Simulated assay, not measured.
Amino acid sequence: MSKVTLQRGTVAILLCVITFLVYIKNINGSELDQHEIMARYYEVISKVEKLYGNHQHADGEFYNGSLDDIAKVEEFLRPYMTEETVSEVINHFFRESEDLLVYAGNFQDYLLTSRESYYSPNLSEGYYSLVRDTILNPGLKLVLDEQITINKKEDKYIIEIDDITIRYYNESEGMYHYSRLGFPPSDCLRATFTFITRDGELVLSNFNVRSL
């Protein structure tokens, strides 16, 4: 075997090794991407929970004492959502009232009716009924990784939750905390969350949540 032939063989082997290593790196990278997407999903759900909390009351209306104007809510949500999604969330949960950003619609009515007591003898009038078809649905943070499907379409990462049963408590044993808030023992959840990359970070660009 000539020296040239040996050198060519060595180069060929090195190229094969490099190609294999790149292939393995790409596979691992895809797995890491999925973990990153799921971590971002749970982070967004956790952040959004804070929109409806720290209830304060003034001039007959309730508002979030930590997020009492549009600028604060925009600053709070902007790292996690596109501008359009931020506006959608704000318009759904809030409305402006003089110098305050107060809760809108049923979110305001619920607190006005129940005041500081969340007791509800009727499931249709409880807290759960209020949030079940929104991004505040408590079941969203209870979904397991293996119950979620992630699809990539062009520059979008789409998380699909397809008719997953969420169990809140055992009906035979009863759970006062959940039942008094209008939670059923279990519920079926369907949701879609679409993320895009902005400045190297995943941000929520669209979502749809429905309790069946």
Rank of each mutant, 00 (worst) to 15 (best):
E125L: 14
R132C: 09
L112Q: 08
D59K: 09
F183W: 02
L6G: 08
P138T: 00
I18G: 08
P79T: 04
N170S: 13
L15P: 08
Y168D: 05
R95P: 01
H35L: 14
K47S: 10
D187K: 08
E201K: 11
Q7P: 02
N206K: 06
F207A: 00
L21K: 14
E154F: 12
T197V: 10
A12I: 12
E75I: 02
N28T: 09
Y80C: 03
L112H: 03
V44Y: 01
M175F: 15
S114H: 13
G174T: 05
F94K: 04
M81G: 03
L181W: 00
T19N: 10
R180F: 11
K152M: 10
G65Q: 05
H55P: 04
N64T: 06
V131Q: 02
I27N: 12
F76E: 02
V131L: 06
F94E: 01
I148M: 15
I196E: 01
N170R: 09
S186W: 01
S186I: 01
L189K: 01
N122H: 12
R40N: 13
T134S: 12
V4A: 11
K141H: 07
G29M: 08
Y42H: 09
T5L: 15
K25T: 14
E116M: 15
E88N: 11
M38E: 08
I148K: 07
H55G: 00
F93S: 04
S66Q: 09
E171F: 08
N206L: 10
T192C: 10
L189T: 04
I18S: 13
V89Y: 08
E116V: 09
D155S: 10
I37Q: 02
S211I: 02
D162S: 15
N106I: 14
L189N: 01
I90Q: 05
G29H: 07
I159M: 04
I196W: 00
I18E: 14
S172K: 13
V131E: 01
I37M: 02
L15A: 14
I148W: 06
K156R: 15
Y52S: 03
E49A: 08
E88I: 05
M38N: 07
K72V: 03
V102W: 01
S66H: 02
E43N: 15
L111I: 04
G105W: 05
L21G: 04
N206A: 15
F76W: 06
L77M: 03
H35G: 06
V22D: 12
I196P: 03
Y128A: 05
P79E: 08
I90F: 09
Q108G: 10
